[in-house]
Design a protein around this nucleic acid. Structure first.
Lengths: 143, 143
DNA sequence: TGCTATTGGTTGGTTTTGTAACTAACAACG
DNA sequence: CGTTGTTAGTTACAAAACCAACCAATAGCA
């Protein structure tokens, strides 16, 4: 790569950030306006809705989120009556989180919106581009 | 797309965030540890270093950054003696920002690091993948 | 058992960010 | 000229993120 005509937009961390920012902001409207949720909150909600009840630690690991972030998101979702906790009998440090009926409904709604938004984004690309994009992003996230 | 086997990692805003987070964190080490800079600060520095002296407003527009963010970053960079301001005579609201010799040196150093990091990231992909990735990300950022 | 280390999760205090209101310089138009 | 509107940039206060110390339950092991 010739350094002289290198554009800032070619620098991967920068380009990723710009793209992530743009899509996050667009999608944020939905969960923020409709349910007063924060980014970490919808992530937690999505994890529980998509993969079923699990412990906070499990969410931390799966989503690469710090435990304080998850802890606060869980409290917020609990206050909204979107989820409830149940202490595990075999290890009373852990508590299993599961969505309430209300939380499940919110998840269903937001999931639909997410799919629609994703599909809309997809229209700008060919199937091959989409495939490459997904593959590359997953790979980068695991680095 | 079948909604039943939809993975959260397939949701573009999520995947983009994870990837952006991963690369940002890795690169952050350099400008943070070595120069005590914040993300917005290195962005501003890069813009000035790459595209030459310009006004804060110009940086806002080019980088899609809010003016308060830029204002604070400029102040921080000024305190570090990395840049200096010069009020425009024809319109005294504006001030042209330019890197000091010190700031230029820091930019040169970080630019090298950035190129190296970008190249290292690139080794994980084929040239075609890299091309698709760049193109798609730029497109998304402009949406 | 009793001691230390580890783990899941929470809390407190500081930094960063976001939002809105503000100042100062200019522009437009009567 | 004035008066009103806009634009570049700053500041103040609230919301959110980050980090480190913390608590309570458990595991490891003498």
């Amino acid at each position: 790569m010739n350094t002289d005509d290198f554009d800032l937009g070619d620098f991967l961390p920068y380009a990723l950030n710009q793209a992530a920012e743009a899509t996050s902001l667009a999608f944020q409207r939905h969960y923020k306006e409709r349910y007063g949720m924060l980014r970490t909150e919808w992530r937690v909600l999505f994890h529980l809705g998509r993969y079923g009840a699990m412990t906070a630690k499990a969410i931390c690991d799966r989503a690469s989120l710090h435990k304080t972030k998850v802890s606060r998101a869980v409290r917020a979702l609990e206050r909204k009556r979107f989820l409830c906790r149940e202490v595990l009998e075999d290890d009373r440090r852990q508590e299993v989180l599961s969505l309430t009926r209300l939380g499940q409904g919110v998840y269903d709604d937001l999931f639909k919106v997410a799919m629609a938004y994703d599909a809309e984004l997809g229209t700008h690309f060919t199937p091959e581009e989409r495939a490459v994009l997904r593959r590359c992003l997953k790979k980068i996230a695991r680095l």
